Amino acid sequence: MARKPVAAVTSADVARLAGVSRATVSFVLNNTQVHRVSETTRAKVLAAADTLGYVPHAAARSLRAGRNNLVLIPAAVSAIGRLVSGWIDDLHTELEQYGCTTVLHAGRFPDPVTAARAWAELRPGAVLALDGSSLTAGAADVLGRAGVRALMAFAPQPLEGVCTVAFDDQRVGVLAAEHLVASGRRRLAVLMPRERGLSTFAAPRLAGARSVAARTVATVTPVEMGYTFASAVELARSWALRDLDGVFAYNDEYAALLLRALLDEGVEVPEDVAVVGCDDLVTAALQRPSLTTIRLDPPPAAQVAAALHELMENGTTAPLPGVEPALVRRGSS
């Protein structure tokens, strides 16, 4: 049996229950400091809103204010590992202090301009792209014409009209491969995750490893693996046939799965194969053997939040420090 639709609660309903004007309701719920409202009146409005279950209309509030405080982060859910998810959580907390709301947008789009049009429909105040390739000049133009004042991206090269945080995934692959070669490994594997959304980051890491092979005696072979133990076991069981003596396993989470599966199949680490991860998660040091990894230090969430707020307010901000990968050598290599 279909449930009869319930009429939406409006600010007029809150005003009637509290015995005040709609303007007063707006002043209280939007925390407007210009108009002074007594604590008694404020308490009555908040109590009425709570009783009725009233939720302010964000889009209407943005139209009145002439600005949206929504910060949109394009990201496939599968692309968010523990390092990134923890950083985004910190960023969300910091942005709340500026009255901003953070939203992850996980849509699939054929090209950056189409993606930008979809993001622009939400009229965000800011777009933060963790993958710089998603913010081309054309995409930035679409967002700018839609009134998005704050555009920020992690990218290897400066992007026109975008506050760019320097970060090159190729450099991650270069560091991992250089370390493996320096450790005497010559037949390198680079793990390519099967999960959707990760190829954007995995492909440049593979390219970085291949650039090392091109100037050394090493070879690089891409190998696929899903983020399941069954997939790791399947890969480990074929390892002897592949004749590979070093692997850059994309990140610490995939590396941990593969490391366990290799050891279970009798493949010694690092004697038979050296393993390198990325992100330097807490668990990397707890593996047995402990996991060699690439540490990534993004700018502090508080600094990024302040820059996004300044971009939304003024259209400009000071440059942010880039992300410089660093090798952390441990027992797995």
Results as ranks from 00 to 15, higher is better:
Ala23Ile: 15
Ala140Leu: 07
Arg295Lys: 08
Gly81Thr: 14
Ser183Asn: 08
Val212Trp: 01
Arg185Pro: 07
Val275Tyr: 05
Leu258Arg: 11
Cys163Asp: 11
Thr41Phe: 00
Tyr54Val: 01
Val212Cys: 00
Asp297Cys: 07
Asp111Cys: 01
His309Val: 06
Val45His: 02
Arg210Tyr: 02
Leu180Met: 08
Ala232Ser: 06
Ser11Pro: 00
Val304Phe: 02
Leu206Ile: 14
Pro74Lys: 09
Arg194Pro: 09
Tyr250His: 12
Gly107Tyr: 02
Leu83Tyr: 14
Val304Thr: 09
Ala182Ile: 08
Leu83Trp: 10
Leu122Ile: 10
Arg215Val: 13
Ala203Glu: 03
Ser183Leu: 08
Leu257Tyr: 13
Pro112Gly: 10
Leu291Lys: 14
Ala155Met: 11
Ala106Trp: 01
Ala202Ser: 10
Asn314Ala: 05
Ala214Cys: 12
Leu257Cys: 08
Leu46Gly: 07
Tyr98Arg: 04
Ser183Cys: 13
Thr316Gly: 00
Ser199Ala: 07
His105Asp: 14
Ser11Leu: 00
Pro124Val: 05
Val20Pro: 00
Ser199Val: 10
Arg61Trp: 01
Leu235Gly: 04
Ala230Val: 15
Gly184Pro: 12
Val172Ile: 15
Asn31Gln: 11
Leu257Pro: 06
Gly107Cys: 00
Leu17Lys: 15
Ala176Tyr: 12
Ala189His: 07
Leu159Arg: 14
Glu313Phe: 12
